[in-house]
């Protein structure tokens, strides 16, 4: 029984990580509590499904639906990232978290209605990426290969992000802005450009999470709110702004949920919040979060 629990836990963790990583990165870089994060996740899902179905309707190869998953995330990021940062978020910098939360909540509400307007109120789905890869048998249980591949993909995203932030010049510029925006500005770094690029990248990660999850979950009204809540829970457990923390938190919650479904199904829904409660009780900054001194 342990093998399927671990596999199910890992695959759930992969989805949770993809939901949360964009949120935690945007907070880490911009110190923005982005309530609209789930909206970008949902837009990524809708865009991937729409593009995949178009490709299918045009008689193009179904393998193109994998390209559609990434392309849709890029499109959502290019369209909404700079626009949101320049028009809405920039005015809130330095005005406290309340202003940011109100603005991003407003964006969340607007985008929720935009989704209904553009994509309708019915559930949408395109499972071509799921069915194309077929199934495999692990521990006597049949799994879609796509679901297993998603675990690998989440690991790739985690390490790529770490490499980008720590190993590239662009990443180091971002980290210098995170560490001390004022000092970075004095050192000649265009912090405004870094902010828009970092936010757009955060939107890309959110949309990528939605698009990669869409072959399994489909897309329906209401998914934005669910993604936002789960992303906050995972990010808070790991420590807001800590990418590795989001990975660790996703792993704990994913495995916890799998154990709950097998041994105590009644606790399945409560697992992320029970874990959050237990962690924040002893480490209010999250598992890998650091206590920051406030500058006056």
């Amino acid at each position: 029984m342990l093998t399927p629990i671990v596999i199910d836990g890992l695959s759930d963790a992969a989805l949770l990580f993809l939901v949360a990583v964009g949120l935690t990165m945007v907070f880490g870089v911009l110190r923005v509590v982005n309530i609209a994060h789930g909206s970008f996740f949902a837009l990524g899902a809708y865009a991937a499904i729409t593009l995949g179905l178009w490709a299918g309707a045009l008689g193009l190869s179904q393998a193109l639906s994998y390209g559609a998953l990434v392309l849709s995330a890029l499109l959502v990021a290019a369209l909404f990232g700079p626009l949101t940062e320049r028009l809405c978020l920039r005015a809130t910098y330095g005005r406290g978290e309340i202003a940011q939360m109100l603005v991003t909540f407003g964006i969340f509400l607007i985008l929720d209605d935009v989704q209904k307007l553009v994509f309708g109120v019915q559930e949408r789905q395109n499972d071509a990426p799921l069915s194309l890869l077929g199934v495999c048998n692990l521990g006597g249980i049949v799994y879609p290969v796509y679901q297993i591949a998603l675990v690998g993909l989440a690991v790739v995203v985690a390490f790529s992000l770490r490499w980008f932030l720590r190993g590239t010049r662009a990443g180091k510029l971002v980290l210098s802005v995170v560490h001390d925006a004022e000092m970075a500005r004095f050192s000649g770094i265009d912090t405004a450009k870094v902010s828009v690029a970092a936010f757009t990248f955060g939107v890309f990660l959110a949309a990528l999470g939605g698009s990669l999850a869409s072959p399994i979950t489909g897309a329906a009204p209401g998914m934005s709110a669910e993604a936002t809540i789960l992303a906050f829970a995972v990010a808070a457990i790991g420590g807001l702004g800590r990418v590795e923390g989001a990975g660790l938190a996703a792993l704990i919650v994913g495995l916890g949920r799998a154990f709950a479904v097998y041994y105590a199904p009644a606790f399945d829904r409560a697992t992320p919040y029970l874990v959050m409660f237990a962690v924040l009780l002893f480490r209010p900054q999250g598992l890998l979060g650091v206590v920051e001194t406030r500058r006056l």
């Binding site: 029984m1 989805l15 979950t217 329906a220 669910e226 799998a258 479904v261």
Partner: peptide
Amino acid sequence: VELYPRLGSPSYSTEISRLLA
């Protein structure tokens, strides 16, 4: 086995594994 996922769950992956097992 008796499972009651919440209304509106987007994924039933673990529940399906549980049923298969």
